[in-house]
């Protein structure tokens, strides 16, 4: 049976891991290669690096981080942040990344998803969606809506999150990395309604992101939220829980996970 994945997410800025609240107030959370190796030893199923500097001049920084990480860690590695062309994708994949995560550039130029999937295969292409709840004016309506944002959550894209996920799948995305901007960094739990809405509309795996504060939240995302995998940052980086704690909890609740290696 396919195991649910636990994926530590490392936001990388200028070669350091950082973590903020609602995309702001960044705090230092360590060296990316050290953190990656640590999570690998702990039993992480996969790793995500999001390069939040992503200015063109600093591209080499993330490539170096990927290269060093891929020499030390032999689990799938996804890299995102400012990826807007096939050559950069290729550079990252050659440095040892297994998947690239596309966000702003894919919204501006959806053909990028298609071109990437054709050249490298759908399994390489993750489409990251940053979504925020839209106030629905009609009173009493429980018809929830989410709008997509670009540029690290700064600009509204004027698109519906569910519709965009469906389009991304059609264009060849292999997975959707879905972040709730309302929940991100709050430790109050994932937006499970958002997760379920997207997971119910696509046939590719959805990775839940934003809001994990306790073990129950992870369980909720994987059950009610129908997510295939959970991304977590704060609760791992600041040592609230270990991967082993998470997997032990989920196993006890009947969720299939890959056991943590004790070697």
């Amino acid at each position: 049976m396919l195991a649910k994945r636990i994926i530590p997410c490392l936001d990388v800025q200028d070669g350091r891991v950082v973590k903020g609240t609602r995309f702001l107030n960044l705090r230092d959370a360590g060296d990316p290669v050290e953190r990656a190796s640590f999570y690998n030893r702990e039993g992480a199923d996969e790793l995500v690096f999001l390069d939040i500097t992503a200015s063109v001049e600093k591209r080499q920084t993330i490539i170096d981080v990927v290269e060093k990480t891929a020499n030390a860690v032999f689990i799938p590695l996804t890299v995102g942040g400012g990826i807007d062309n096939l050559d950069f994708m290729q550079e990252l994949l050659q440095s040892g990344a297994d998947k690239v995560s596309l966000n702003t550039a894919a919204l501006q130029n959806p053909e990028l998803i298609q071109a990437g999937a054709q050249r490298f295969g759908s399994q390489c292409i993750v489409v990251a969606i940053d979504a925020k709840r839209v106030e629905v004016s009609s009173s009493g309506s429980d018809d929830l809506k989410w709008e997509v944002f670009t540029h690290g959550g700064r600009n509204p894209a004027g698109r519906d999150a569910v519709e965009w996920a469906v389009t991304a799948e059609k264009l060849g995305a292999g997975e959707i990395l879905l972040t709730s901007m309302d929940a991100d960094g709050t430790l109050d739990g994932y937006d499970t309604a958002l997760l379920a809405a997207v997971a119910g509309a696509v046939n590719i795996p959805v990775i839940a992101s934003g809001g994990a504060g306790n073990l129950e939240h992870l369980y909720e995302a994987l059950t009610n939220g129908q997510a295939h995998a959970v991304l977590a940052a704060s609760i791992l980086h600041y040592g609230t829980y270990s991967i082993a704690d998470i997997k032990e909890y989920l196993t006890a609740k009947g969720i299939p996970v890959r056991p943590v290696n004790i070697d």
Partner: peptide, 10 residues
């Protein structure tokens, strides 16, 4: 079945 089959399996 959701495809691709992505992730860890026995």
């Amino acid at each position: 079945l959701p495809v691709p089959h992505v992730g860890w399996n026995k």
